[in-house]
């Protein structure tokens, strides 16, 4: 990623000593990082390395065993792990977005595309139907879905369209940060290229920050300013994307980078 994040502001997210254990099993252990406004960081590593557990902890979907996730909300820093449910729901509706690998988990399949986008607006108190529809149409266009499909159910959409609808449904309230769990996996390459292009434009236009979990290093290089490499629940190496991919230092990172076909 070559667009320049705005690093003059305070960190948007501060993850401190975050750990999650499932009984004796380690989900993620002693994770520390900061994320600045406009910055995109990637979390890479093989399946089972704890990437999604970490993302779920940040998103408030899983309660960590230890540690804190400080989020610079419109009311100042709050610890997402210690806040009450009502506040977390409010933040998840307005200031953060979460895009899941399987769009069926992130969308309501039984309501229209427009309804999926409008839901977040209505949850935030918008009541004017005409206005909600207008905004939904604009967002469909932004994520390159034919606005004529506004009344269709997501079920009738292709996988790539569902992913883009999920992104639109999250971004409609202009959150500060998007958490994404493998948004491009399972899509064929041309659809993936389109999704990446849409996301890159949104990042620079909205000064959006992202935490992107992916096992695709080519996607990581295109999208992310910095990368964190996870293995067995721990971060073993981190740095600028080109440093990690062109000059991996740790044995596991070298294995990871040398195992893929040239990105």
């Amino acid at each position: 990623m070559t667009g320049m994040p705005d690093k003059t502001n305070l960190p948007l997210l501060k993850v401190q000593n975050l750990s999650k254990f499932f009984g004796k099993h380690i989900g993620c252990h002693d994770i520390n990082f900061e994320l600045s406004p406009g910055e995109v960081i990637g979390i890479v590593g093989e399946s089972g390395s704890g990437k999604s557990t970490l993302l779920n902890c940040i998103a408030g979907k899983t309660n960590p065993t230890n540690g804190a996730v400080y989020f610079n909300s419109s009311d100042g820093y709050i610890d997402l792990c210690m806040s009450d449910e009502a506040l977390l729901r409010k933040i998840a509706r307005t200031q953060t977005g979460f895009v899941t690998q399987n769009s069926r988990d992130g969308l309501r399949m039984g309501i229209s595309a427009g309804g999926n986008i409008g839901e977040r607006l209505m949850a935030n108190g918008m009541r004017n139907y005409g206005q909600i529809r207008k905004i939904a149409l604009e967002w469909l266009e932004t994520v390159e879905i034919d606005p004529a499909r506004i009344d269709d159910l997501p079920e009738t959409f292709s996988g790539g369209m569902q992913q883009r609808l999920q992104i639109a449904a999250n971004l409609v309230t202009e959150p500060k940060i998007m958490l994404m769990d493998e948004p491009t996996s399972g899509l064929d390459v041309s659809v993936q290229a389109r999704l990446i292009d849409v996301l890159r434009k949104l990042v620079s236009r909205l000064n959006l920050s992202m935490v992107l979990v992916t096992h695709d290093l080519a996607v990581a290089r295109l999208m992310c300013h910095r990368l964190y490499v996870m293995k067995n629940g721990k971060i073993i190496e981190s740095g600028l994307s080109d440093q990690i991919l062109d000059d991996p230092r740790k044995p596991y990172t070298q294995l990871l980078v040398s195992s893929v076909l040239k990105p």
């Binding site: 290229a193 389109r194 990446i196 890159r200 290089r221 300013h225 910095r226 600028l240």
Partner: peptide, 26 residues
């Protein structure tokens, strides 16, 4: 820090090789 590196690459140091990293659709 990474923040400073982004800024240095924007304003102070340019790097040109013979290889383009192509971004699809751009």
């Amino acid at each position: 820090a990474p923040a400073l590196i982004y800024n240095i690459r924007q304003d102070t140091i340019g790097y040109v090789s013979q290889f383009l990293r192509v971004v699809p659709r751009v």
